[in-house]
């Protein structure tokens, strides 16, 4: 906090001073509603973290919602493929704000062992703003719980004034990637792709030869 608030001597031990942001964040951090959504292998450890031994209910998150409209935390628990990523972006766009993303495991973070595959997106953070990354393949349920705790810290320390959810201007939706063409198309890259189409083929071959070198 920027400035220390002075409590008069006679009131010490009688009053409790906090900032609005802090108490608001404290309320929010224990009422996250994760989305009931598994992608791949990590989903099993995600479920194991929700089951008896690790029990996310102790963090106030046992109410996993199947609808994105009722969720404010999405755990990307597995390999994001090109076929799946438009749907994941759609789900994220449909979630209620303020919303958070946890990228669970190596695959969701950077493609993981399947990174070299032709149908795999190298990291969901190409499209979604990820708050917490959880390393591991797969992360243990404890690692996921530690990530939840880290996310709680982050929410607690968010200032209502600064955080983007509470600004006046609306938050733009993440553009949904386009599928159905020769490959996945990121709408933000369309001008560059159009530019590339006009280029002489010579340049493109130079690029590919550099790639294979």
């Amino acid at each position: 906090m920027t400035q220390e608030i002075q409590v008069p001597e006679e009131l010490k031990g009688q009053v409790f001073i906090t900032t609005l942001s802090q108490i608001y964040g404290w309320g929010r951090r224990y009422s996250l509603w994760p989305m009931f959504f598994g992608v791949a292998c990590c989903a099993f450890e995600f479920m194991a973290a929700s089951a008896a031994r690790f029990d996310v209910g102790r963090f106030g998150m046992d109410l996993a919602r199947a609808s994105p409209r009722q969720a404010d935390l999405i755990v990307i628990s597995g390999t994001v493929t090109k076929k799946m990523v438009p749907k994941i972006v759609m789900l994220y766009n449909q979630m209620a704000e303020p919303k958070y993303v946890i990228s669970m495991g190596a695959c969701a973070t950077g493609g993981g062992p399947f990174k070299e595959g032709y149908n795999v997106v190298s990291g969901v953070d190409q499209f979604l703003p990820v708050d917490i990354y959880v390393p591991g393949c797969p992360p243990t349920p404890e690692a996921l719980l530690a990530a939840y705790i880290a996310l709680h810290e982050k929410i607690q320390n968010e200032s209502i004034k600064k955080v983007r959810w509470y600004r006046r201007e609306p938050i733009p939706e993440v553009p949904v990637p386009l599928l159905g063409g020769p490959d996945l198309i990121d709408p933000r890259q369309i001008p560059a792709i159009r530019q590339a189409a006009l280029e002489r083929p010579v340049e493109a071959t130079a690029e590919t030869s550099e790639t294979s070198a």
Partner: peptide, 13 residues
Amino acid sequence: EHEIPTSDRDRDM
């Protein structure tokens, strides 16, 4: 060491 969540992929991973 497995409980190592991070918010910066390039720096920490």
